[in-house]
């Protein structure tokens, strides 16, 4: 096989990965942008989404599209509920202090991860895709479901963008992001905005987890990779910049796809980190960051 098909495959894999990554990283960036906190448990929300999808597949069984639909509905809601509970029980009590929040979300990470280990078991579980279409690309056939994943992710990204720009809640979020005290003074229910944003960020990660599970597998340790990549993305894009996060997700995602297909996925992660080092040397605030976070 010549280089051409390899490159096409790498591009496709990269784009699909980038879309999922953009969705996950957007959740993290949204939470940081509005609440100024880093959610280390973000990857676990992703994992919860995937595991719930596996549980749905186990409960509903046939047909796969019904199980997938259930997962797409249940996972974001359930994970948002977990996030809301965490926000209410822990984050609100430490007043969203940056360092305490990080320690608290690390705690949350292990509690969620170990609970899944107990409830779901240590094995990875495959979940059937809701449909199977083989797209013939001449050199090789490509899984049509993967393109649907990309489409769904892009749709959700657009929905979040529209929601931020056109709805009252979006206005509240942007106001809180710009100046929390001023927003409070103008009657924005900041506390509720915080809870909503945290739940929304978690739900985005959960949806990404559901979308990705027919391609990967559901496993209780799967949260670390998306967390790491999301971190890379928000640092490269500039902490707090949503536009930066999405652009960086596509750059990192596509290059990750290329290196993964042509060399190895581990090398791809190492190279991505080196890229971050370069960005930091040249521009410590990230590509689209406005102020030092």
């Amino acid at each position: 096989m010549s280089l051409g098909p390899h490159l096409l495959l790498a591009l496709l894999e990269g784009l699909v990965g980038a879309c999922v990554l953009a969705l996950t990283a957007l959740g993290l960036a949204l939470v940081f942008g509005v609440m100024r906190i880093v959610n280390v448990a973000h990857g676990e929300f992703f994992m919860l989404g995937a595991v719930i999808a596996a549980a749905c597949a186990g409960l509903v069984g046939d047909p796969p599209w019904l199980a997938f639909g259930c997962a797409l509905l249940v996972a974001p809601l359930a994970v948002a509920a977990v996030a809301t509970a965490a926000d209410w029980a822990v984050l609100r009590r430490v007043r969203y202090d940056p360092e305490s929040t990080i320690v608290a979300t690390i705690g949350l990470l292990y509690i969620v991860q170990q609970s899944v280990l107990v409830l779901h078991g240590p094995d990875a579980r495959a979940v059937p895709a809701p449909f199977y279409v083989r797209l013939d690309l001449g050199w090789f056939g490509y899984n049509g479901y993967k393109l649907m994943v990309a489409g769904a992710a892009v749709t959700l990204l657009l929905a979040v963008w529209l929601g931020l720009g056109r709805t009252r809640l979006g206005l509240y979020m942007r106001a809180t992001q710009q100046d929390r005290e001023m927003a409070t003074a103008l009657g924005v229910p900041v506390r509720r905005v915080y809870a909503t944003v945290f739940a929304l960020g978690a739900a985005l990660a959960a949806v990404a987890g559901v979308l990705v599970v027919p391609i990967q597998q559901a496993h209780y340790l799967m949260g670390l990779d998306p967390l790491l990549l999301s971190f890379i993305v928000v640092i490269v894009g500039g902490l707090g910049s949503l536009k930066g996060a999405v652009i960086a997700a596509f750059v990192i995602g596509v290059s990750d796809g290329f290196v993964s297909v042509l060399f190895s996925p581990t090398l791809a992660k190492i190279l991505a980190t080196l890229l971050v080092a370069m960005v930091l040397v040249v521009r410590p605030r990230g590509l689209f960051g406005t102020s030092e976070a």
């Binding site: 880093v38 971190f231 976070a293």
Partner: peptide, 9 residues
């Protein structure tokens, strides 16, 4: 927090 993320990365 950026320092923290970078260390973890």
């Amino acid at each position: 927090v950026a320092f923290l993320i970078v260390t973890m990365m």
